[in-house]
Structure formats: C-alpha cells, structure tokens
Design a protein around this nucleic acid. Structure first.
Length: 454
RNA sequence: GUGACUUUAGCUCAGUUGGUUAGAGCAUCAGAUUGUGGUUCUGAGGGUCGUGGGUUCGAACCCCAUAAGUCACCCCA
C-alpha cells in the first residue's frame, strides 16, 4: 500500500480526548451561566443561503465567507461572458446558492425574522456552535472556531446590557480567571465625536483608524487618517477629544452634549456606569474606552470587548447593541443586544496561563483485568453489575501479561484496577489495587462499590 | 490579499567549510521480573532529510520552483 499524505484543511484542528475534556469544561461552564440568566438554547444550520450572509459584514467579510459550490451541472446557466473573462466576483453568486455561516448573529437575526410571531418577547437565546471564516490562520485565529453567543431581542432596556456584562463577569470567574478587562463604548458617542470632528460621512474610516490607537499610537493614527484624506482639522479635533477623555472627562462630556446623539449617548453611559457601580463585578474590571469601535457595522449603541490581562491575545469576547439587525430581513424596529465568547481563544489563553492544572483524571473509575481464560466471563459479569450501580469501568479486551494490563491502566490514569484469577474467582472476590497508593486488597463486589462510590 | 520565518524518526530537535552506512532525548516494542503499573538497566524497530527540478565526482547542507506550517499586517473571536 502506498503511503498517503494525510492532512486536514488549513486552519482546522482535531481535538484529542485530553483537549476535548478541557474544551467541554469551557462550554459547560459558559452554558451553565447562560442558563442561570434565563437564556434558552438555539441551533441553526451550518450553511445559510448565500444572500442571507452577503453584504452583512462589509466587503472584507464577504471575501472571508466559505462558499459552497452548487451540486449538479452548476455551469449550465452561467453567463458565458463572465466565464470567459474570468470574473470570479460576478460568477460566485451564480455558482453558489449557499455558504457556511460566518457568525451566529446574522443567522439568529434571520431566525427571529422568520419566527417573530411565535416568539415571546423579549426573546433570550444562547447558541454555541462553530463558525467558519476563510481567513489566513495565525495565533488565536482559526478557519473553524466556536462562538458562544447570547442575545436578548425585543427590548431596548439597558438592563439587558447589565445582564450581559454580569454574564461575562460570572462566566470568566467560573472558568478561573482572576483578571479580565471589559472595554465598553457606545456608538452614539462615537457618532457624536465624528460630528464634532466634521467627518460623519467618513464614520467607518474614522473608527477603524481610531480603533488601532493602542497599537500604533497617535503617530500611526494620524498617518493612516492623512492617507485616507481626512483634513488636518478633523484629525486634530479628534485627537483633542480623545485626549480629553483621559485628562478631563467632564470636559469631554460637555463637548459631547453639544450634539443630539451625544446627549443620548451620555445619558445611556451615565445609566450604565451608575448601575454597574451599584451591582459590582467580581473578576472583571470595566472601563469606558472611547477608542473602542468594533468592525461590524450593525452595532448602534453600546459595544463591548473583553481582554485577558497579561496575555498577548486578541479579544476573547465581544458584542453590542443593534437597533435594526432584523430590518434587512424585513422585520423593522426590533432592538437587540448580544455578546459572544470566543471559546477557542479562551482555551488558548487558559492553556498559556496554565489554568487547567494537571491533566484531569480519566473518566473511567475502574479498570479490570483477567489472566486466565476461565475468568473472562465472571469479569465481564462483574463489570456489567458495577455499571448498573453507576461505576464507570472497562475491561482490558484481551488476554495479556499483567504488566501490560497495568501499564494500560496507568497510561490512561485509571485510579483503580481489579484483577480476577482462578483464586479470586473461587472466593467470589477480586484483587482491587489502588494505583495511586499501590495498596491492594481482596474484596467482594459490595466492597468494591463501597470503595468506588462517592 | 501583503510580508517574514520554518520543514530531518511518532514527538522535540542536533547535524562541522558540501565528503563513506544521517544522530540524540522522549515515545513505542521486547527482555531483566512465569500474577502487578509508575523508577532503573539492557536491547530492538523506526527516516527517499516536505515535494519536484538544477549545480557538483559527490547534496540534509548551495540555487530555482512548489506545497504545508508558524508568526505579523489587514481584519477579527
């Protein structure tokens, strides 16, 4: 047989049993916190109709969609001119009716629009599923990764925001984090800033540049904005306002209050910060970061981003309020707010900070071995009886040297090993060995249960 | 989409100015130990040096191409 070079697609991963145990811990922890706050599960298909996804994430996002080639004779109806001139961009929608979902928010909005009449508002759902992006992989970035989303739709109460921030706080604490930072901003305040700088029409470009401030500094931001043809006055005013945030926050607020949208944003900010102070947070700290922008354009109110302190990793969570996400699916005036946990990055961070501790012990409580053909059946019968009592046990499947069977149990980190031979069989007992202490005793079935049951 | 680096045994990596049969540690298997794991000792198996070309008497090493991986930019979880 010739050797085949086996591999998996770029940016995807296999998860070994030891990795899966840690991942499941993360998912279960996050899920339990979601349920604590009254959110209910939802799943949507891996693929959506192509038009459902396109145009929602900006041009960049569209390029990162994984498209699914149509089945059958997919070239039959295709425009011959596009084909001959190799116009991939025009051709793609003709060849692909479906694409893999890029996030969980748009599919959720699609679901809400489709099922609005059936929903009890406010509708609170959580969704833990993989998403796919045709990005170039690097640290903390994969082509297939899980998002854990919670969204509240159908209310514009800011108590929803408070709930979500508390969920971040509680979930990260439960995962074992002692220091995460929740950055908070409000799009309304950013719009107010843009108005004051006279660049409302260039809002996205402004926020994209501003978002990089902590990375590239003012020099970099000025350079980028100059390259994008922002006026000197705009840049200087922007810099003045942002610096004012650090040196004279009341002064900044006074400026923001000059615009109508600024007044609304300030009002929201004051409510949120006041409430958060009253409620208090545990492991998380929070702060207003006027430079936080977030790329996705459907956000209209508060926006959030979570960072683990002391680790070089992008954000491990993010979200915000969107006033009209379902509008694109024909359902207007439904306000929602949601956040996401980046489970894969959370895993990477926890691994880097060595938060998992030693490899968790095996899920099997008892390994069983036999070394005589005559004891195979009694051993298997014992195993079945123990399983009926809730003991997780497994029998080494073949006759082998004792040494090999014990090594098997040891490698699998099974804590107890029971051996049955002729002698034990006659007495109706097994030799039970505690592999941690090395202690070994002859015991009956009832005694095994007493030792292994918590 | 742009750029940098990496690729040698299952894993982590050595490999001299280009020179016989490419090494180590860990892991695996066997034995020391005929009914007992972790430690120790002994031994064994395992490599077309990412792939395809080129230069050379001779290439893991030099040159070209290509693939995969990692990291950074863009963007994002």
């Amino acid at each position: 047989m010739s050797k085949v070079n086996v591999s998996i697609p770029k940016g995807t991963r296999d998860f070994s049993p030891s990795v899966m145990k840690k991942r499941q811990f993360i998912f279960q922890t996050i899920r339990s916190v979601f349920e604590l706050y009254g959110f209910e599960p939802l799943e949507t298909p891996a693929m959506e109709n192509y038009e459902t996804l396109t145009g929602k994430y900006g041009e960049e996002g569209d390029q990162l969609l994984f498209k699914i080639l149509n089945n059958g004779d997919y070239l039959k109806e295709v425009n011959a001119e596009w084909l001959s001139t190799r116009e991939s961009k025009k051709l793609t929608p003709a060849l692909c009716d479906r694409a893999l979902r890029y996030d969980l928010t748009i599919p959720f909005a699609r679901y809400v629009a489709m099922n609005y009449a059936l929903l009890t508002l406010p509708f609170k759902r959580y969704q833990i599923q993989p998403v796919w992006r045709a990005d170039r992989p690097q640290k903390g970035r994969y082509r297939e990764f899980y998002q854990c989303d919670v969204d509240i739709i159908g209310t514009d109460s800011l108590w929803s925001e408070i709930d979500l921030i508390k969920i971040y706080d509680r979930a990260f604490a439960k995962l074992g984090f002692d220091n995460v930072q929740i950055l908070i901003n409000n799009r309304k305040l950013l719009v107010a800033v843009a108005e004051l700088c006279g660049c409302v029409d260039r809002f996205t470009d402004m926020t994209v540049a501003l978002d990089k401030l902590d990375k590239i500094g003012w020099e970099g931001v000025e350079k980028e904005m100059t390259e994008r043809n922002f006026s000197i006055e705009s840049i200087l005013e922007l810099k003045r306002l942002i610096l004012l945030k650090e040196t004279d926050e009341p002064g900044l607020i006074k400026c923001l209050l000059q615009t109508e949208i600024g007044r609304k944003g300030v009002e929201e900010w004051e409510f949120l910060s006041h409430s958060l102070q009253l409620m208090g947070l545990g492991c998380a700290s929070w702060k207003w970061d006027l430079t936080l922008a977030r790329g996705l354009n459907y956000y209209t109110g508060f926006i959030f981003e979570v960072k683990a302190v002391g680790v070089n990793m992008g954000s491990i969570g993010g979200g915000g309020r969107y006033d009209d996400l379902t509008g694109i699916f024909g359902l207007a005036n439904v306000s929602g707010v949601g956040i996401s946990f980046g489970a894969d990055r959370i895993y990477d961070v926890m691994e880097e900070l060595q938060m998992f501790g030693e490899d968790a012990s095996a899920s099997t409580q008892l390994g069983m071995a036999y070394f005589s053909e005559s004891t195979i059946i009694p051993t298997q019968l014992w195993a079945e009886q123990l399983r009926s009592q809730g003991i997780r046990c497994e029998v080494y499947p073949e006759m082998a040297k004792m040494k090999k069977q014990f090594k098997w149990a040891d490698d699998k980190k099974i804590p107890f090993m029971a051996v049955m031979g002729e002698e034990e069989m006659k007495l109706g007992k097994v030799n039970l060995k505690n592999l941690t202490t090395g202690e070994q005793t002859m015991v009956t079935l009832e005694e095994v249960l007493l030792i292994l049951k918590p």
